[in-house]
Write a protein that binds this DNA or RNA. Sequence first.
DNA 1: TTAATTATTTAGCTTTGTCTAAATTTTAAT
DNA 2: ATTAAAATTTAGACAAAGCTAAATAATTAA
Lengths: 219, 219
Amino acid sequence: MNLTVAEENYIKAIYKLQEGDQAVTTNALAYELDTKPASVTDMAKKLKEKKLIDYEKYQGITLTPEGRKTALQVVRRHRLWECFLVDKLSFSWEEVHELAEELEHVRSEKLINRLSDFLGNPVIDPHGDPIPDAHGRMAKPRPQTPLDQANAKRLVVTAVSDQSTALLAFLNAKGIKLGTQLEIVAHYEFDNSIEIKMKHLSSLTISEQVAKNIMVRPL
Amino acid sequence: MNLTVAEENYIKAIYKLQEGDQAVTTNALAYELDTKPASVTDMAKKLKEKKLIDYEKYQGITLTPEGRKTALQVVRRHRLWECFLVDKLSFSWEEVHELAEELEHVRSEKLINRLSDFLGNPVIDPHGDPIPDAHGRMAKPRPQTPLDQANAKRLVVTAVSDQSTALLAFLNAKGIKLGTQLEIVAHYEFDNSIEIKMKHLSSLTISEQVAKNIMVRPL
DNA sequence: TTAATTATTTAGCTTTGTCTAAATTTTAAT
DNA sequence: ATTAAAATTTAGACAAAGCTAAATAATTAA
């Protein structure tokens, strides 16, 4: 199947938004891809034609098995390039998302498999997200929750949404990265803020907005 | 200047075809890019608008200084990716051209400069072509001639056209690569063939067709 | 259950890069 | 210096991917 860059981006976004077997809505997809609902409808027809999605008008979108396979390939490419950029070219984690968005569209199984070997076949990317293997199999992520919903006191950072460069830069500035251990000191409902403390450092306060993009598991 | 992939490919092709200050013809460019002369005319108008080429109708195309700069950037990216693929991912030289054609369009100065550092700032690519530095400066290639026009008997292979995968695979099979030393045993005018001999090997006969894609210098 | 709101789709237009066929200009040959 | 051939450009069309505005369907609220 020969897909355009736009088609691959749609498939990837649908994969990302799909939870369980709930259909992805036109609006949600438009928002995710920073485009208009009308454009999504157009593309939905094309992707249905190519049997990558199931789509009936007004009923939302779900990936077919074929579509899911495609999505996993794109995700694999994206995450391997992120590893390359961080591990080999010394980029920091907040810089790599945009570059990987471009590199991921170079479609060559051979290239990507060799890249994986070169990197030592990593199973998670620099943001803590699992990397699908050549067959689309992925280590199922360890149970993790957004920091704003964590109930345990002592936690480890396991992943961070890689969508916002600003967020990643902010976390960098605060010294928060994958594997960082922290404790929840207090959760203030009245202003939606959370006070946390990292080893050897004074505590700091972050907004729920930020906290919900930081995934953690109990230590 | 924000260029599309198509625009970059045109600029690169014009750079490749331009010899001295001779204008590149519409037809030659169409042939090089595997497209139609009418399409070239259309694109020429756009590139002129962007001040990357000088173009007057029926008069052919030349790069402006700005266009040349752009071309050198694309060539730099292409050749560095070729180095990466060969040196780090163990591709052979005939496989890398097509992949580099895609990778070269990821536009990030930071990425490409870090890639260059990572590779040890190479000055020639796997086909022997010089790599422009970050400022567009390029080691001027040592004097070299196509094998079919060489007059010296003992020669070293300095470069090979990377355009044809078939050619590169053929050379691979014969054991001819960069740095290979060979002698011209005879040049048969009547059937346009050349007999060459490599150290420790029996002589072999190749066509002028092939020979003119092999660049050599006297040993 | 009807009305209002929200979500989605349709229709028609735009841009980029391509094409074919026809017209025009340049070059080469007699 | 004409004329024939080759090269180039113009005109008009198309596909991909997007947009806006208007129409329609689905959902929510009164």
